[in-house]
Nucleic acid binder design. Structure first.
Length: 274
DNA sequence: ACTATGTCCTGCGAGC
DNA sequence: TGCTCGCAGGACATAG
């Protein structure tokens, strides 16, 4: 499932491959169920636009669009195409002759002759267009310690839930929340407000570190995640607790436990994490 | 203002 | 072998 490192990897790959290309036409399937925009709005916003850049914001992929025609000093506002991959969404750059995969919900024909396709079996992904996208939460890689600590102040919710709350931090999902909590030696059910400043320092550092390591590894390939070139990431090999229920803790050999927090499976070491 | 829970959706793997 | 069933999860809706 694409979280921050996977989305970062995908956005970088797409930026290399499609930035500078022009969207000639757009086909949209019946229900990509865009959040704020109808299929017509999306198609209208994308058609004959230049993709000036692709980048990540939180778990969102942001395509910056510009008018492709030189002429008329464009007073028209530039728009951004926002793609959220949900659980199983993927964006693929394909030769037009290649077979259209099942669950393809959008196809963009590019001036270069290639196609950019959005495929999403589970349909949790979302497409939308907006003038200026702003993530509701803070970027975990950029946030200062004081801002980080303030996010959790007075919150009774389990720290695991708080980490997953995109209004607080943008981009942290189930895998990296578990991995960061393990590295910081904090149990997922701990009330966020109960974390000491030292806990918070370790947590912020662990989160940044695990996200950066995962980006360097090209993300975690779980289920069918691949990047823009179809390459798998390999950070899943470095997971210390996620998906390791019953297996020995890599530090103390105690079996890793799995519990449910906020309806999400959460993995931790009962010996190493307090 | 927070927090907790249910919902969406399909593929896959466990279990019989 | 082949079937059913339950689980996986991000973000929103709804209820408390």
């Amino acid at each position: 499932m694409p979280e921050l490192p996977e989305v970062e990897t995908i956005a970088r790959g797409l930026n290399q491959r499609v930035a500078g290309d022009v969207i000639e036409s757009v086909w949209l399937g019946s229900k990509p169920e865009p959040l704020k925009s109808s299929a017509q709005e999306i198609a209208a916003a994308l058609e004959s636009k230049l993709i000036s850049s692709v980048r990540r914001v939180g778990k969102h992929i942001v395509f910056a669009l510009a008018h492709s025609k030189n002429g008329a000093s464009n007073s028209a506002k530039e728009t951004q195409w926002i793609v959220h991959l949900g659980m199983t969404g993927s964006l693929r750059v394909c030769p037009p002759a290649s077979e259209v995969a099942k669950h393809t919900h959008a196809i963009l024909k590019l001036a270069s002759g290639r196609e950019l396709r959005f495929v999403d079996p589970r349909r949790f992904g979302r497409l939308s267009v907006i003038e200026k996208f702003k993530a509701p939460g803070s970027e975990p890689l950029d946030i200062s310690f004081e801002d980080f600590a303030a996010l959790f102040h007075g919150r009774k919710t389990p720290i695991k839930s708080a980490l997953l709350n995109q209004k607080l931090l943008s981009g942290v999902g189930n895998i990296y929340a578990d991995e960061a909590l393990f590295r910081a030696k904090i149990r997922p059910r701990r009330r966020a407000s109960s974390l000491t400043r030292d806990d918070l320092r370790r947590l912020r550092a662990a989160l940044k570190k695990v996200l950066q390591e995962a980006i360097r590894a090209g993300g975690s390939s779980i289920s069918d995640y691949v990047d823009a070139d179809g390459e798998e990431g390999f950070f899943q090999l470095k997971h210390r607790v996620y998906g390791r229920e019953g297996k020995p803790c890599l530090v103390c050999k105690m079996p890793v436990k799995r519990i449910v927090v906020a309806g999400r499976s959460s993995h931790y070491c009962p010996h190493c994490q307090m």
